[in-house]
């Protein structure tokens, strides 16, 4: 019975963990795509695809962990959806910006810096809910 209750308590995190899991697989395949189509993609794209996936792996697990903690701490559902949804949009922006355009561009900037801000806000919120 406790197990069933726990599943309901982390419903929001379950949604965003699942969505980001699918995005992680997509980005991993994008690395293969850029490598296998070496002659058909720009020289810079394989390295960029690799960096998109690496940055995703560096940032998303900690963001999802923070989301899980916030949900277990009883934060409002609407705020949890705002965090999870924003994280997804920011990671897509970063992937599009870094993976499809060479050099500095706004999707990449907003995606990367937005993720850092979001993680910072969620981290501070986690600490705040402890008191």
């Amino acid at each position: 019975m406790n197990e069933v209750n726990l599943i309901h308590e982390i419903q929001v995190t379950a949604i965003y963990a699942g969505v980001h899991g699918l995005l992680a697989v997509l980005l991993a395949n994008f690395v293969l795509y850029a490598r296998l189509r070496g002659s058909k993609v720009p020289d810079w794209q394989p390295e960029a695809a690799f960096r998109v996936q690496a940055n995703f792996i560096e940032n998303v697990p900690i963001a999802l962990l923070l989301l899980l903690v916030l949900e277990l701490q009883g934060v409002q559902t609407i705020l949890l959806h705002a965090c999870g949804g924003t994280l997804f949009v920011l990671r897509v922006l970063h992937a599009v910006g870094l993976g499809t355009y060479q050099g500095a561009n706004y999707p990449r900037l907003i995606g990367a810096q937005g993720t850092f801000v979001l993680i910072s806000v969620m981290a501070v919120s986690c600490i705040a809910t402890a008191f």
């Binding site: 699918l22 697989v25 997509l26 395949n29 293969l32 795509y33 296998l36």
Partner: peptide, 11 residues
């Protein structure tokens, strides 16, 4: 299906 379609997209 998801991974199968991604492989087909890749290769």
């Amino acid at each position: 299906i998801w991974q199968g379609l991604l492989i087909t997209w890749v290769s």
